[in-house]
């Protein structure tokens, strides 16, 4: 998906100082950007922050944008980078919290954990078993329906790496789904 002429003109207008052209440039991606951010973070508040940051950076660094590329994918790339940084930070904080409260979690027993898992959606259950890279690849390729090349471009990795991560992500997702719905194994 390459940039269309209207977008190119809007980018040039913003770069020449007409900031008001930024709104028509990004409005078509208003919802898709938020959706990608949500699927990567699985938290609406965080998704909004990620999308906001992506828009802010897009405006700030529009001069560095290569107009031969898709503007949407460039926006998604910024959002994916931001989401990755936040997830990394969140994981570090969670690790520290688990370490600190290991005793209290142990006291709650396995029942509370099982109950929490039951209330999570299928998507949450699947994404929770994926590594950060697998999750990004799976979200962009399978949930956002981008192709392998676009996914690679957004994540700044090779197509081979996308295929490797996609394979292992789909394997893990299948295992989670089949564990919950065993009848699907026979294709019913």
């Amino acid at each position: 998906m390459r940039m269309n002429e209207t977008e190119k003109e809007l980018v040039e207008m913003v770069l020449s100082g007409r900031s008001e052209a930024f709104e028509p440039l990004v409005t078509p991606y208003r919802q898709p950007l938020l959706a990608v951010a949500y699927r990567l973070t699985r938290d609406w508040e965080e998704a909004k922050e990620v999308a906001q940051e992506a828009l802010l950076r897009a405006f700030k660094y529009l001069g560095r944008y290569d107009t031969s590329r898709s503007f949407r994918n460039w926006l998604f790339q910024i959002a994916a980078n931001e989401a990755r940084d936040r997830l990394r930070k969140r994981r570090r904080e969670a690790d520290a919290a688990v370490e600190a409260g290991r005793e209290s979690i142990r006291n709650q027993g396995p029942e509370s954990g099982r109950r929490a898992r039951e209330f999570r959606s299928d998507i949450d259950n699947c994404l929770s078993v994926l590594s950060a890279r697998e999750r990004e690849v799976f979200v962009l390729r399978d949930l956002e329906d981008l192709n392998i090349k676009e996914t690679a471009g957004i994540l700044g990795i090779s197509s081979v790496s996308v295929r490797v991560n996609l394979s292992s992500a789909r394997r893990k997702v299948r295992d989670v789904i089949l564990a919950k719905y065993p009848h699907l194994e026979e294709g019913r």
Binding site: S121, C126, D142, L143, V173, R174, I177, L178, E185, G187
Partner: peptide, 30 residues
């Protein structure tokens, strides 16, 4: 069977993603 298992699982997750009801910004927020 392996292929069918993958297709069913993927189909289920994609359907769940479509049904998830993604939110949008409110106009004043945007």
């Amino acid at each position: 069977l392996d292929l069918e298992g993958y297709r069913s699982a993927l189909g289920r997750v994609k359907a769940a993603a479509r049904e998830e009801g993604l939110r949008d910004w409110s106009d004043p927020e945007w």
